[in-house]
Design a protein around this nucleic acid. Sequence first.
DNA 1: CCTGGCGTTGACGCCGACGTCAAGGATTAC
DNA 2: GTAATCCTTGACGTCGGCGTCAACGCCAGG
Lengths: 142, 142
Amino acid sequence: MRIGELARRVGTTTRTLRYYESRGLLPARRDGNGYRTYGEDDVRLLEQIRTLQDFGFELEETRPFVECLRSGHPAGDSCPASVAVYRRKLGELDALIGELTSVRAQVGAELARAEEAMAGLAADAGAAPDGPEPRCELRGTG
Amino acid sequence: MRIGELARRVGTTTRTLRYYESRGLLPARRDGNGYRTYGEDDVRLLEQIRTLQDFGFELEETRPFVECLRSGHPAGDSCPASVAVYRRKLGELDALIGELTSVRAQVGAELARAEEAMAGLAADAGAAPDGPEPRCELRGTG
DNA sequence: CCTGGCGTTGACGCCGACGTCAAGGATTAC
DNA sequence: GTAATCCTTGACGTCGGCGTCAACGCCAGG
């Protein structure tokens, strides 16, 4: 199998496969013309990489999985190094979700506050809630 | 106030302030030497930007808040456009948190599966759970 | 006068994962 | 034969928010 067919089979581009090769993942044999040649193992290897990429793993983080597969394991996550990456990622995900949840709460609070303030101003001035603009046109445009 | 002092007061760098100016946020008057000159309004404006940046807003998303402040409003979020950005951001945050939560669940499941498989293999072969390596050395290193 | 510390503009560097184009050689279809 | 399609390498572009360096101007202290 050559690079174009492999790319089609895993739903990516030849550029991506060459990039993976340049990073040391996905090595390729060459035929007489210098064309890259791949086998079924490479399909599995790429599917592993794509799955992790879809999870938001960086390419470097997929390396233990790739090396695990290449060393003969049936699955990329059958090696301790891969499991360690899983664990690290879980921690990062938890931390990130926690931060985002905190930010979400703060933004929600700011939104509520702003809406209340605008409603209060609208009530005070008797203006429409959608267009308070005291002197909202920018003077410095020219 | 000149650029260095302003940067120190809001806890950022002069590079950042010049960058904001180049993006059309934070305009500056100049004194006789061509030095940028700022006032207290600019401190508030920058604090608004930094707060939003800390929330993960892109610079472009802070523009409505900045224009709101510059148009004379007491707060950057007293304008409908700013409130709209808040709402949009809440939606993005919810979507992102949802995706990350889903990914976290999938990664957690994969981790559990991998750990169970490794434990099963270790029991089958009587090997240590930390070093299964059937033929783990990479052959293609040289 | 020299040094040091502020200011100015311009321009390149960084990161990650590729996209895209260039210029050529090989293969395949008709 | 020839056109279309595939392959090769190399190199620059993308995006955001600056960092960092270069080369220079302005001013105060000793």
